[in-house]
Computed example of a mutant assay.
Amino acid sequence: MAEGGQIDTDILSDEAFDVLCSMCKNQGKNTEGEQYCVDCKDYFCVSCVKVHSKVPLCAGHKVLDKSQIKSRTSKGLPRAPTERCDRHSHKHIDMYCQKHDTVGCSTCMAVDHRLCKDTFYIPEFIQNNTYQVVATREIQTKLKALDTILAEKADRFKQDKQRLLKRKAEILADIRKFRQEINDHLDKLEKSSINEIEDKVKSLEDKIKDSLKQLQANKSRITSINDKLTSTNTNQSEVFVYVKMAEDAATVAYKYIDDSELQCTTEDIEYQPDITIPTQLEEKKTLGTLAKKHTKTSVSLFQI
């Protein structure tokens, strides 16, 4: 067990092993590997690990001492995850808090889970706990279902936008037709009425765009983590991280779906011409009045 993002050395062995330094091996030398780089997944002797640490791209790599590496059996310690932490980009997501059932880097654990006793180094947790592939299948099934739901909602938003623009065109045509039935004095009124409709439609269209943007963000996250789960099948630690990330993504997506269902009422606009205009042109500012109309059905968004 580890607390505050630290590796629990109580369950690691100091036994010697005969793994060779990868850099020396490439040069035809047989030098025992004294340290292990989690990121490179290679062993290094005392001299070569110094060279490794000086390479800029390897500056943030996690290197384990010989005392932190279990004896090299056929199974060994599972490979560490390579997914980078969103909050601490120089760190890898290689820690797991069992109390909160969440993963993070060592810095996350030190900051957010310092009081949690059940925090583990993921490769050790995987090795000492039976992790079922069923959880991976379940979250993949959940992600696939969510992807379908979000895709359907995206189509509905697009259809709403098309209906909105279609009704906008119809209203503008009706306004111009109505304007032709009266005298030239309607030029100014026509412009005011069109501007009012344009502003209202723009407001509704912006709302749809905002909703679609939120939906696409959830859908992209669902698709991305599902792709990672699909392409990762050998690194159990990596799968563990992606499953936990997928569960978080699924929770956010479900909340978005629930919230959007509560606000699924479509805001509508209704236009009513003013039949008194022919006799009262001088007193009017627009060709009619706009009113909102709410509906849950796929009927026309505007009526004139």
Rank of each mutant, 00 (worst) to 15 (best):
I182W: 07
E152P: 01
P278T: 02
D18L: 11
E124L: 15
I69L: 14
I208P: 00
K292R: 10
A151L: 10
D147C: 10
T82H: 14
D8C: 00
E124Y: 12
M245Y: 08
E152S: 07
H113L: 07
T73M: 11
K158Y: 05
T279F: 15
Y271L: 08
K213N: 08
A80T: 13
C105D: 02
I175T: 02
E205H: 14
D210Y: 02
A250Y: 05
C108L: 08
I126M: 11
E270L: 13
E83S: 11
S298Y: 04
E283T: 09
L77M: 15
L57N: 14
E138Q: 13
D39G: 02
K244G: 04
Q6F: 10
A217N: 06
K293M: 06
I182E: 08
H92V: 09
A80R: 05
N235H: 03
A154H: 11
M245R: 12
V19W: 04
K62R: 13
T119K: 02
Y96R: 04
Q280N: 13
Q140P: 05
N195W: 03
K54Q: 15
T297M: 07
L281I: 14
I222W: 01
D274C: 09
L229D: 02
Q272P: 04
A154L: 09
K54P: 02
D86L: 11
T286E: 10
Q68M: 15
A169I: 06
V201Y: 00
L281D: 09
T136R: 14
N233I: 07
K285W: 03
I257P: 00
S89M: 13
E15H: 00
Q180W: 01
A253S: 04
L20Q: 03
I275Q: 13
R221L: 07
V133I: 10
T73R: 13
A173Y: 06
D118Q: 07
C40K: 06
C108M: 10
T136C: 07
E267Q: 14
N226H: 15
Y254C: 09
A249C: 11
P123I: 03
D94Q: 07
S47G: 10
D274Q: 08
D259T: 06
M23C: 03
S74E: 13
N235A: 01
Q159T: 03
D65M: 08
E34Q: 11
S224P: 02
Q180A: 15
K29D: 06
D10A: 02
K75P: 04
S47N: 12
Y36G: 00
K284P: 00
K166Q: 05
L262T: 13
Y121W: 06
F240P: 01
V51M: 12
A173M: 07
Q35E: 09
K207W: 00
A145N: 15
E198T: 06
C85V: 04
I182N: 08
F302A: 08
K66Q: 15
S211C: 07
T266F: 11
L229N: 04
H52I: 03
